[in-house]
């Protein structure tokens, strides 16, 4: 049992698995995203209220969804870092934090673009947008802390503590922002809560979400591999790997 666990944590083992897994992840991601997005953007019915502008949800919702789950994944990896000191968990957090930041930014950006035709303004202090903005700050803080600490082990553990504190706070932040929102602006219409979304809308949405997950998986593997090569550059297997790549 412990041996398997140890093996799972070995960067070299992961590097090999990732190399084999990545083509599948990428192919799956591209296929799902292509179907989901083309269906959603071109063929799904118009919204009776917003016309075509609602179609940005096929990008907005998946990125917002993933932005939040990436943070939770980082927190889970943070526990592994703190409790079991698994190197792979350190690498994971460092590799995906910028991806999470970009996804959060994408969600905010598409939200703003969507806000312009529907609300008539680029930014609105809507509860969801505000929560996403705070999530952006949390990602930014984690990345800044990681960059500020030279020793990579200490950096990983410090970031793990910060992300864990953040994850405890996320529900509190969400709740308080929603409360604040109802306090300050009653009667904003909520766009993402459609009780009766037709299947022609939610199926492509689901496909895009799954596609983005796979794309994230591919990107995470790629970034982790890069990070592993940088960290393990003095080991024999990395040298052999690089020489083999150069020869081939």
């Amino acid at each position: 049992m412990w041996q398997i666990f140890h093996k799972l944590g070995s960067p070299k083992w992961f590097f090999g698995i990732a190399t084999r897994l990545m083509p599948w992840l990428l192919a799956g991601a591209l296929a799902l995203l292509a179907v989901g997005l083309v269906w959603g953007l071109a063929f799904a019915p118009k919204d009776y209220l917003q016309g075509n502008s609602y179609r940005i949800i096929f990008i907005h919702v998946p990125s917002a969804f993933l932005a939040q789950s990436v943070y939770i994944m980082m927190a889970t990896a943070g526990v592994v870092t703190l409790v079991w000191r698994m190197k792979l968990a350190d690498v994971f957090v460092k590799a995906v934090a910028p991806v999470g930041l970009v996804l959060t930014f994408l969600a905010l950006f598409t939200g703003a673009v969507w806000g312009k035709p529907t609300w008539g303004t680029w930014w609105i202090w809507d509860a969801r947008l505000t929560s996403m903005l705070i999530l952006l700050f949390l990602y930014g803080g984690a990345i800044a802390l990681d960059r500020a600490i030279n020793d990579e082990k200490s950096a990983a553990r410090a970031v793990a503590v910060l992300v864990l504190v953040g994850v405890v706070n996320i529900p509190i932040i969400k709740y308080s922002v929603e409360w604040w929102n109802t306090l300050h602006q009653p009667a904003t219409f909520k766009l993402t809560e459609k009780p009766s979304m037709p299947a022609e809308m939610w199926v492509p949405l689901l496909l895009s979400v799954l596609g983005l997950y796979l794309l994230f998986g591919w990107l995470a593997c790629l970034r982790m591999q890069t990070e592993i090569l940088a960290r393990e550059q003095r080991t024999r297997w990395v040298k052999e790997h690089v020489l083999a790549r150069r020869a081939g």
Partner: peptide
């Protein structure tokens, strides 16, 4: 940078 986001609920 690290702390302000965590202060938001208290402020609200």
């Amino acid at each position: 940078l690290l702390i302000i986001p965590l202060y938001i609920p208290v402020l609200i």
